[in-house]
Simulated scan of single mutants.
Amino acid sequence: MSGRHGHGDDHHDADGHHGGGWAGVRRSFSHVLSHLNPFGHSHDAADSVDDALASNEEGIRALKISLVALVVTALLQAVVVAFSGSVALLADTIHNFGDALTALPLWVAFALAKRPANRAYTYGYGRAEDLAGVAIVGLILFSACVAGYQSVTKLINGSEVSNVGWVAAAGVVGFLGNELVAQFRIRVGKKIGSAALVADGQHARTDGFTSLAVVAGALGVAFGYPILDPLVGLGITVAILFIVKDSASSMWRRMMDAVEPEVVDSIEEVAAGVPGVEGVGVVRARWVGHRIHSEVEIGVLGGVSASEIARIRERLSAEARRAVPKLERLVVEAVPCG
């Protein structure tokens, strides 16, 4: 199929359910829905807004808990830094504080995403999550610069580390704190479909391994090689820079409306399998926050009635939502053919 035909009645918005498992999360949004103006008037549309609000609220709750956990972890490490002088531990502590701060822009983004669409922001405020991702990349880069500066300074001027056992213990605390936060963020991020929250959880997991590097530096000092402490600090800085590279690449894809190819494949397969669909044309999809908006062009026989086309659209929409749980909107364009 090729070309795009008249729009008008050939468009259909399918705002619907996003898979099961949300019953326990939807408990507090009925009063909010009364103030919203969702797309369409069907129960599916209301459920779609309900799911989106619930996922945003759960994302905010995850950020609150992980923020507190990382701040407590970093504060414990900072106490050890104060009386040990370990630059490797200082670099890791700074990074953990920076990682905790990455929760703030995401928090703001999730809060904005709860606002309904309006005549100015017709797609809502889901894009705020992508902008928060850009801010997160900037914060991670800043933490790398600070850690690198401190490490180079100690390498030039010398480094004296005391209380090596406490430094190693603080490194272990950093690893455990980051790993717990990573598991929590990744689990919630996958549940609500937030790539930014999943990426932030993977970032925390990487931080946990850099904390283990602090333990290695402390052991080097214990065996009479104090230069290992600033060298480990530099190694952590390099690791952070690699995180910056990967995170920036991920955010570039999101800002350019990239989507996982399997999403497009799933919608194409579903459309091709619906009775009455003679062909599948262009399929477009993009993430808006942690929800997917998509368009699909299908071919139908010229003599098919309007009611039959409506039935095809309804079935396609229902099947697509089952195949792609995070699909929030599907616009179906029916094009006469053959």
Rank of each mutant, 00 (worst) to 15 (best):
L141M: 12
V80L: 10
L33P: 09
G3D: 05
E297V: 07
L63R: 12
V72D: 11
F209G: 04
V332Q: 13
L139F: 01
H17I: 04
D44E: 14
L63N: 10
A103L: 14
G20L: 11
V221Y: 02
S30L: 14
A168Q: 12
R313F: 10
K245S: 02
V270R: 05
Q183A: 14
V80Y: 07
A320W: 08
V167M: 08
V134W: 04
G133K: 03
A91D: 06
A23S: 15
K114P: 08
N178Y: 03
F209D: 07
D50C: 14
L67T: 05
W166Q: 03
Y123I: 04
A195G: 05
E268I: 13
S2A: 11
H31N: 12
R4Y: 13
D257W: 00
K114F: 09
G233W: 05
I136C: 00
I312L: 11
A120M: 14
I140Q: 06
R321H: 15
G235L: 04
C337S: 10
A111I: 07
I186F: 12
Q183L: 15
A135I: 08
L234P: 03
L76M: 10
I156W: 00
V32L: 13
H41A: 15
A248M: 06
L89R: 07
A310Q: 14
L241C: 01
A310T: 14
D15K: 15
L228P: 00
V335C: 12
A239S: 10
T102A: 09
G201H: 13
G124C: 08
I156T: 01
P275C: 12
V232T: 07
Q202R: 14
L53S: 13
R286K: 03
A258P: 00
D51N: 09
G40E: 07
Y125C: 01
M251L: 03
V277C: 11
R4A: 10
I240M: 05
R185P: 02
T153C: 00
K64F: 08
A323N: 01
K326Q: 06
G8D: 13
D257V: 03
E333R: 14
